[in-house]
């Protein structure tokens, strides 16, 4: 166990003095073992599913899912790319709702929280309560569903996957707290004296110095949109609008879904159906969904943590 006694940097990034009274070596070893075990539990399911996706169908038939398959194969991925019409469609849908949804959601939240941050805003109190009351009380699933579907026409369109989660009071709290801690009031004063309008102040002075806050809520929101399947389950019947997560959910009981929605028809489709590497194919899809998150998340972790920390403390 290498002991680094040079000024450790804490998680918030601020330096702190090296603690002279570190835990004893045996204790530290035990701690490492416990944490390594838990970390393994956290990542092994993903690795396991990854291995299954590269396992040949015969091997699965013979020995089931295994960490040590008899034979590896790229079959599943070949099928995914070969009959991927529905898959690419869903990939596009997921990216589309993530990008458009995040942009709109962050814009609306930033505008709303900026007004709540301004102490001199006349209706500040009213709109603060107006927003946060919805965290405590709501109409419930059935009334919300009926309003969305029957009144607002959120059914089988992209809006149905974006609009119902546009504003999250949690994000308003995060953004308002960010403004409160990072925007000096003098700055607003001097901007007003210089004749800067409210929108100009917000977009050209306040938001540029609130980038970490914007990053936090953008990442949390895009993660929520990327992982979205509940709204699809409620409002989407047409496979044209299925995002990845919902496609995956439907594949749980209907593996043939991909074939049915591909351009392949007739005997060709029947042949594909017969040789379809069902098991590995589904796991390959799981891998393709998780990969973007797995690669992006370590880099953005910092912003997500700061957002979640603020949200949980102030909320």
């Amino acid at each position: 166990m290498a002991r680094v006694e040079t000024m450790p940097v804490s998680h918030t990034g601020k330096k702190r003095k090296a603690r002279m009274n570190a835990v004893s070596l045996p204790t530290e070893v035990v701690i490492h073992i416990v944490l390594i075990l838990f970390c393994l539990i956290c990542v092994i399911p993903f690795i396991f599913v990854g291995i299954i996706s590269f396992t040949s169908e015969e091997s699965i038939r013979e020995i089931g899912y295994s960490f040590l398959p008899n034979k590896l194969s790229l079959q599943a991925y070949r099928y995914v790319f070969d009959l991927g019409d529905q898959l690419w469609r869903s990939y596009f849908n997921s990216f589309y709702i993530t990008i458009v949804g995040t942009f709109l959601s962050v814009l609306i939240s930033a505008l709303y929280s900026y007004a709540l941050f301004r102490k001199d805003y006349k209706y500040r109190r009213f709109f603060t309560i107006f927003c946060f009351f919805t965290m405590l009380f709501g109409g419930g699933l059935a009334p919300t569903y009926m309003v969305c579907k029957n009144l607002l026409g959120l059914s089988d369109n992209y809006a149905a996957l974006i609009v119902p989660t546009l504003l999250n009071p949690f994000n308003v709290i995060i953004m308002r707290t960010f403004f409160q801690t990072s925007i000096p009031l003098d700055l607003l004063d001097s901007a007003a004296i210089d004749g800067s309008g409210e929108y100009h102040t917000l977009f050209h002075i306040v938001l540029p110095i609130s980038k970490p806050g914007i990053a936090s809520i953008s990442l949390l929101t895009s993660l929520a949109y990327w992982n979205e399947w509940f709204l699809s389950m409620l409002y989407i019947r047409d496979a044209k609008y299925f995002p990845l997560q919902y496609l995956l959910m439907r594949m749980q009981n209907q593996v043939d879904f991909l074939v049915k929605n591909s351009s392949k028809i007739g005997p060709e489709a029947a042949k594909i159906m017969r040789d379809l590497p069902q098991e590995s194919l589904r796991m390959a899809l799981v891998v393709l969904i998780v990969i973007p998150i797995a690669f992006a998340y370590p880099f953005f972790q910092r912003y997500i943590i700061s957002g979640l920390t603020i949200g949980s403390i102030k909320g």
Binding site: L111, T134, G138, G139, G140, L167, E198
Partner: peptide, 20 residues
């Protein structure tokens, strides 16, 4: 600035409350 969010709250959070 508050308006887009407020309209959303009315339509998707307050209107359904009548559905109770």
């Amino acid at each position: 600035m508050v308006l887009p969010g407020a309209i959303w709250l009315v339509l998707l959070r307050y209107l359904p409350m009548f559905g109770i």
